[in-house]
Design a protein around this nucleic acid. Sequence first.
DNA 1: ACCTGAACACCGTTCAAGT
DNA 2: ACCTGAACACCGTTCAAGT
Lengths: 210, 210
Amino acid sequence: MARPRTPVLTAARIADAAMELIDSGKPFGVNALARALSVQPSSLYNHLDGRRAIIELVRGRLVERYMSDIPEELPWDEAVELLVRSERRMYTEHPHIVPLIVTETVTDAAAIASYDHMAGVLLRGGFPEEEVLVLIQLLDAFALGSGLDFAAPEDVWEPTTPTLHLARLLALQPSGKTRSDQAFEIGLEMLLTALRARLAAHQATQTDAS
Amino acid sequence: MARPRTPVLTAARIADAAMELIDSGKPFGVNALARALSVQPSSLYNHLDGRRAIIELVRGRLVERYMSDIPEELPWDEAVELLVRSERRMYTEHPHIVPLIVTETVTDAAAIASYDHMAGVLLRGGFPEEEVLVLIQLLDAFALGSGLDFAAPEDVWEPTTPTLHLARLLALQPSGKTRSDQAFEIGLEMLLTALRARLAAHQATQTDAS
DNA sequence: ACCTGAACACCGTTCAAGT
DNA sequence: ACCTGAACACCGTTCAAGT
């Protein structure tokens, strides 16, 4: 015991086990993760800087898997659509990651690169510099919210008192995942429409000024 | 000791202390809350059903404070704007509640009533029934995201590797809260534009069909 | 009815000790 | 360098005991 001749753990092995634990839906934690790896919690600290670092590592792995291989030469709006669809797919296929990352600062290199990519797309599209981060955040919040909804579509609202509309609308929905998919399509269409309209307005005022 | 002649706790007293603890920015928890009330953690269970119930109660208090007194007779788009602005103000003035409620199912009666109100507004505006919940969720996610951003505007992205655009765009932003305000205004304008366009499209196809 | 206090099964993190 | 094991200061929840 103590130090093994060949190391038991690596950051990669920890990340794999963390993703497995998260995807299983069981509560994620450093201790639970250590148990899954048949190791003491303290051992993990030789490879990673605690809970937040582990979550950030998992985020990075997912981003690499889902957000790479986006073609470079697309028109801006097609690129935006593809990026948002990829991000949403990432969350729907790994829904339990969502509550873990929404409150964490993004530091992982791959994740930063992905947002950087989106920034490039919007800048090349012609959006003003001051506005790009705002738009990224809007699109990101939409993808995240859509992922949360997909993860627990029945559990967003649970009326216990009589309602004028809400309970009826909830009952009227096609159940669960397919509703969430429809919601995503409607939201995405609206956001893309709004983006195109906004860009057109910018370009009109630019033309006026010249 | 044991049972006091006049009760020390009530749900209202617990809710007040919980809001104070949350607003202070210190980590929220049942034990920490009990300490603030000079009481044993187990005592709280005589009045409330644990951590989630406490959070839900605080949500309800905030919704009552910020989302009531919305005039009934406004045009749908003005009502939507007012509701989203009120919700966002709720989160900016109590930012530490946001991470606590994003992952909780909405059960509080006042909160449900507020979403029900929004449903009524959109239905009277002429949006189709199947779409109303989707739109509410989109607007809600926007208000929540905007609140999260306001709570920690510097901490959303923290690039540690070189970026093509992101680091520059971050540095270029007016700092903190005012940027978050601008972001909110842009996003709200885009969403309202998109809603109006969508409603117009619906009404056009309805006219076609008749 | 409403509080205490002990108990349980957890957390995340630090650090000395061991090889 | 990399693991164990003990320790610390926490969690949320249950339940018997007391008035």
